[in-house]
């Protein structure tokens, strides 16, 4: 990784990689839906945003997260601003937990993540059904929350490798 520091453009690409992955994931709707498992889906942007904002990764700009939310709404077909709000609520919750935590614990973070995404998905569901009269399947949201929670631990281990590579 020492060699990376000498290669400016490559390093730039490496540090901006999380944001790039976030944009790719919102544009591509990466959720393995084509596996055709009933209700199966997970929200990769939630995991990504939660992890990197929790780590206070300085290249993970809130404004870019906000824009990614607008893109996500456009791709999915939701009213503009819903995903932005969801993403920013994750940012707020991670900023809060960062402020109150002295000794970080991965397990606590994991369950805190479950609490946050449950809250956000509930808010999403309520907003869409009450204010925008959308017909939605509640089960899809529950399953999505559950699998996002499960996949968190897998992706976190990958992201840790990424951060380790950057620190080295």
């Amino acid at each position: 990784m020492t060699s990376l520091k000498h290669k400016g453009s490559l390093l730039k690409f490496y540090v901006w990689l999380p944001i790039l992955v976030l944009y790719i994931s919102v544009l591509n709707e990466f959720d393995l839906n084509y596996l055709n498992l009933k209700y199966f889906s997970f929200n990769f942007p939630f995991i990504l945003i939660f992890f990197f904002t929790l780590k206070d990764f300085k290249y993970f700009d809130y404004f870019l997260v906000f824009i990614a939310g607008l893109f996500n709404d456009t791709v999915i077909g939701l009213p503009l601003g819903i995903s932005s709000l969801s993403f920013l609520l994750i940012c707020i919750s991670t900023a809060y937990i960062r402020n109150i935590t002295i000794r970080p614990n991965p397990l606590k973070d994991w369950f805190y993540f479950l609490f946050v995404i449950s809250l956000i998905n509930s808010l999403n569901y309520s907003l869409l059904t009450l204010f925008f009269s959308y017909n939605l399947i509640l089960m899809s949201y529950l399953v999505n929350t559950f699998f996002t929670f499960l996949f968190y631990i897998i992706f976190v281990s990958l992201f840790k490798y990424y951060l380790k590579g950057l620190n080295d």
Binding site: F63, G81, L88, I92, L127
Partner: peptide, 10 residues
């Protein structure tokens, strides 16, 4: 600021 903008847009 960003949350406020999001809510305004919604």
């Amino acid at each position: 600021t960003l949350v406020s903008i999001s809510i305004i847009i919604i």
